[in-house]
Write a protein that binds this DNA or RNA. Structure first.
Lengths: 66, 66
DNA sequence: ATTATATACCAATATTTTTGGTATTTCAAG
DNA sequence: CTTGAAATACCAAAAATATTGGTATATAAT
């Protein structure tokens, strides 16, 4: 059973770009607390939003999910 | 704006394995109509389920989503 | 044509995600 | 230290999305 690493990956990618949760939230059009929830593994975005995040960070689906 | 091809990919992967919606549904533990909805782009599975589907079809996240 | 199997539709339910309001934490400046 | 501002997190309700019960329609084989 594969573990989805999205939460941790998102957090470290965001930090590596020097962005705050609020800044990333604005970029993708959600609230800062949504980013917080994603990073804490409370919930996850849909595919379209995931693609948007991949685009921003220059990552593939595979790298951001595993 | 990237188009997510999940719906079409899922359908063709399922057919390439010679599975019916019901058979795939049983494999992953959902109803046949859920598979139908995924294939018609009405809704989409979560990451864990997506990973399960990738595993079954021997595909990567990238190949199943793009 | 009849039966069996496969897929799709609608509407209600269940579940998940998102946010309003706010609390806590972090951290730099004095 | 203490203060103030920026960053992140918590709770509960709202909003949005996914799933399924009941059933209809379609596809295929005999």
């Amino acid at each position: 059973m594969i573990k989805i690493m999205f939460a941790e990956n998102l957090k470290s990618l965001r930090k590596s770009k020097g962005l705050t949760q609020k800044e990333l939230a604005d970029k993708v059009g959600v609230d800062q607390r949504t980013i917080s929830a994603w990073e804490k593994g409370i919930c996850e975005p849909g595919f379209q939003m995931l693609a948007h995040l991949c685009e921003i960070f220059g990552e593939t689906f595979d790298s951001i999910l595993s």
